[in-house]
Design a protein around this nucleic acid. Structure first.
Length: 383
DNA sequence: TAACAGTCAATATT
DNA sequence: AATATTGACTGTTA
């Protein structure tokens, strides 16, 4: 613990972040509430005057079951009609989107950084507060009241009253202060499904594309280089995260019971249309869907188990870039392991999805292996 | 310096 | 209206 505390010290005060204050309604009163449902190991020795900062608590916190915590939080919130926005802003200091993401795909405790654990500690703290719901509902009422008031007082007075949070108004004024008119906000880039497909395919070949490859992709897809780079960063990290959840899900299911094919209908991932290069003969469920031509500016990327044509732009052919000597082996077409087509039950799209992700992860590992191989000192091999 | 981890916040979906 | 998704941004890390 002492070592843990020291590591906290370094993080001490630099809370300079633009993090909106206004929260911290944390009442760390020692009201020992022996919640039967949750282990609740947090409220450790509460020394009188010591109002441990959350960071200190995070550092000292024992392992928490992030999955259980999010599950419980979701339950409490829905049971009481409390939204993620309110909960996030008042309890966690996070935005609605972040809360949604966090609740839906919590990373396992051991994979979280100190910073990443904070929201979970706060949630645990909140869950252990006997008055949590009551307090939130009060906040809700107050907000509504304030809202009504505003709306009333401003009949013709048009003043949306921006939120108190930082007004990050990105005004990409190409020409300084000329047009006081509508601010040209940086338009949000929205990748077309075909572009995502191409990027995913490229990822399958090379999770860590060289700057040269990235440049090629950007050109071929007509995207900014930074967009491609960002996409890869985001994709890698999100793929990783999904593996985590499937990991715990599998673990949980395994413990749950023995053989009954009771598939957890958990409303998890929906089939992502992507498809790996798989000449695989496995009779994949072909959803005959596919609407007729719609505003497609390009013939829908061929789905169907047909050995996809390499014509479609993007994604360099395997042979192409032979540049970086070492790599090039990271290619997993991953054909079925099990000989006969999948047997019993579960012919879930999620199944092939999982395979895909695992394959992606393997490629990832290979990348790191290759990287490690270039280091003489085996001690640096983080495996 | 590239890759990450956390988030934000604009959009998409429900 | 509430919740989910996701490109981009900020601060770390090695």
């Amino acid at each position: 613990l002492s070592s843990a505390e020291e590591s906290v010290k370094s993080l001490g005060e630099p809370l300079g972040l633009q993090t909106s204050g206004a929260d911290q309604l944390q009442s760390s009163e020692p009201s020992e509430s022996s919640q039967p449902s949750t282990p609740l190991p947090l409220p450790m020795s509460n020394l009188g005057p010591s109002a441990l900062s959350i960071q200190e608590m995070v550092a000292m916190s024992p392992e928490l079951d992030t999955y259980a915590i999010t599950k419980k939080v979701k339950e409490v919130l829905t049971d009481n009609n409390l939204g993620q926005r309110l909960f996030g802003e008042t309890i966690l200091g996070l935005t609605q989107g972040s809360v949604s993401d966090l609740l839906a795909r919590p990373k396992p405790w051991h994979k979280l950084s100190l910073k990443g654990r904070e929201p979970f500690v706060r949630m645990q703290l909140w869950l252990s507060d006997p008055r949590n719901v009551e307090k939130l509902m009060d906040m809700k009422r107050m907000e509504k009241k304030a809202y009504m008031k505003r709306r009333h007082s401003s009949m013709s007075d048009t003043q949306p009253v921006e939120s108190v949070l930082q007004g990050t108004d990105f005004v990409q004024a190409s020409s300084p202060q000329h047009h006081p008119q509508q601010q040209l906000k940086k338009p949000r880039v929205v990748l077309a499904p075909e572009e995502k497909e191409a990027l995913k395919r490229a990822y399958q070949q090379k999770p860590y594309p060289s700057p040269k490859t990235i440049e090629e992709l950007a050109t071929q897809l007509n995207l900014k280089t930074s967009t491609v780079i960002n996409w890869f960063h985001n994709y890698r990290s999100r793929i990783r995260r999904e593996l985590f959840i499937e990991e715990i899900q599998a673990a949980g299911a395994a413990t749950a019971e023995g053989v009954s094919p009771t598939v957890r209908p958990s409303k998890a991932s929906e089939g992502d249309s992507c498809d790996g290069t798989e000449p695989d003969t496995t009779a994949d469920e072909n959803k005959p869907s596919e609407e007729a031509g719609s505003a497609g500016k390009e013939p829908t990327p061929s789905h169907s188990p047909t050995p996809r044509d390499p014509t479609t732009s993007a994604a360099e052919g395997p042979g192409t870039s032979g540049q970086s000597g070492a790599s090039s082996l990271a290619l997993f077409g991953f054909s079925e392991t099990a000989p006969a087509a999948s047997s019993s039950s579960s012919r879930n799209p999620k199944d092939s999805n999982l395979r895909k992700k695992k394959a992606a992860n393997l490629n990832n590992i290979i990348h790191r292996l290759e990287k490690a191989a270039s280091k003489e000192d085996p001690s640096e091999w983080e495996f």
